[in-house]
Design a protein around this nucleic acid. Structure first.
Lengths: 202, 202, 202, 202
DNA sequence: AATGAATGAGTATTCATTCAT
DNA sequence: GATGAATGAATACTCATTCAT
């Protein structure tokens, strides 16, 4: 299955298929979306699908990896000009929340992926990559004394778990609910950086 | 569909079916586990399954709700004699981690459930109940001045998200990995209570 | 399967089963009524059913034959003191219509039976018996000159077909509709005896 | 479920499926004919069936409606050039009997349909349409004075009931019996028009 | 007489994928 | 490049009947 060399028209078709599939997967979930659905949406025969993608699974996985890549890019873009590790973490958190707020389709896609064993490993791998990014900043902060000592990997997963759960809860399936909670990012940052205790208590 | 009246033998059978199903669901996932699998495991006809449960979905949902109930019970038991709200939160976190460490099957079950749209609402409801419990302690702590002011519901979800992600990562599918990380609970408590910043920095 | 010798209590039970079954068959049809339904309605175990009846089919067939017998009896009762064959036919028609008007359950049962190949032969046999009764009167009438010459069997079936269709249409599933059409019997008699032509036209 | 666009080959296949199904339904009844039977008869996979028809029920219903339409067409064709309403009724009766004599498969299909609650409403609707046609002629005849006054709808149902019963009895399952009774139409017409009484008696 | 338990053959339908044209 | 047609394995659920107790 070497990459097929595509004409301009072919490239366009391929994208159309991906877009239609993304929308359907987000709406109906993976198993409930059939190859037939995707083709019907575009008004084409099933052959089209299999001309561009070797299987339904492969298409989904491509869609998923795209999404995770975009998320990571958004984080990097938000961070690249920031020096202080704590500020980097904060901006990373804000960027993630903004990302999911703006493209809820990708959140749904990632959540959908997590639902199926077939893709759990992709999601986990994606998580791990992001956690590694995060852990790097944490280590720097520890070295600089601005972050308390502890297992950076674990902390990174704590941040990730909290953030993903926040966006799931607050930007969940309920599309209308998405617009409110403008201060969610502030609160999320506060939780991740300071936990829940009263600061002067330590 | 009134509750069937079961003899001692029937009660035992029903439990056998639940146990077999739980194991298979945990191993193979929901869709990949067929009603036939469950019956074959027990060496009985398919009718047995449908004598005790109206459908595969119903059985799974019963299993799931049992699990969530057990988790909540474990938390309550750990807390009931503790007065200080912060201490209650800490004990709740420790109890949750211990619960999943000791019964990894239930973790897998809950994760499996979250994978399927059919059950997502149960899981969400379970999450919400636990979050509500947690929020209660947070509010008390805020009133007492030991917990910083903020949205208690959001904080509760932060804790939940972090904890579930920890156990997923560290007690995940890889059963062997379960035994290590004895200090996970300490670190998780630290993350949730104090976040990541150096305490004297505030 | 020699007739079981039943105690008083047993006889009562048997009747209860028949009554419950009749109601359910009329409501839900034959295939849609399960042996379990019948037993649940009575609050007894399945063994009861099979203690009194060798099979679901047998029970239904007994119910059916009872109904046809009752119909025939009603006809005989209406006729026995009538001498004139035309009057006998008329009274037979009126009795049939009255019978189905008063016991719509039996109409439903017979219609249900006709729906299933398994019982069609019983229904046909029942029809045949009634047609034979009718044909006897027709022959007498022909001999007496009051009825036009023709194939008595065929005429008998014409009457039967018309009557059954009338009651089906006018006392059909719609239970409320049953009460109206008090003059149905008159019209049915007119149709069967005189057809549709204007009398003086011949 | 928009209509599928079919190639010539597809159209042929669709017809093959319908023919095979019709034969099997007529032979074995609706429930006893499985989708597998139909496909096996044609030597194709089960997918073929579901490519052309959404369900077994839908196919049967299409077959049934076709049959009723054909019957009605046969009646119309026999009538269109006839002016006198009584003559129209007579020709309609003859056409119906001829129709069922010539295509006994359709009679069987309609009888089969009447057997199952799922389709009873179609059959009833078909009956009603034909009864309405008939009632129209009856009304004309009444206006013209050639038909006695009475409820035309009821008379129409009388005719229908008698005719259907005649064909059921005389062209019934027993295929061989079909050929005899060439004079059935005459006798049926006589019954419907003149009833059973001696004409000069009125 | 009666019960609850167990049996297991039977069936419509889905859908990813392949293929002839 | 693209189409419609075809494949066929896979699966939840039903229910008349039997049976151990």
């Amino acid at each position: 299955m070497a990459e097929r060399r595509l004409t301009k028209r072919g490239t366009r078709r391929r994208e159309q298929v991906m877009e239609a599939a993304q929308r359907l997967f987000a709406d109906q979930g993976y198993h409930r979306t059939t190859v037939g659905d995707v083709c019907d949406t575009l008004g084409v025969g099933k052959g089209v699908f299999y001309w561009y993608f070797p299987s339904k699974e492969e298409l989904f996985s491509e869609l998923l990896q795209d999404s995770l890549l975009q998320l990571r890019r958004a984080q990097h873009a938000a961070i690249e000009k920031v020096d202080d590790p704590v500020a980097r973490l904060e901006e990373g958190i804000r960027a993630s929340i903004a990302f999911f707020r703006e493209t809820p389709g990708l959140l749904t896609l990632i959540r959908t992926a997590a639902r199926y064993e077939e893709f759990a490993s992709f999601v986990d791998k994606g998580h791990q990559i992001i956690a590694d990014d995060t852990a790097t900043h944490l280590k720097e902060g520890m070295a600089a004394g601005s972050i308390r000592h502890g297992d950076p990997e674990l902390m990174a997963h704590g941040i990730l778990g909290a953030i993903f759960h926040f966006v799931e809860i607050y930007f969940g399936t309920d599309v209308e609910a998405t617009s409110d909670r403008p201060q969610l990012a502030d609160e999320a940052v506060a939780f991740c950086l300071r936990g829940i205790l009263q600061g002067d208590k330590h």
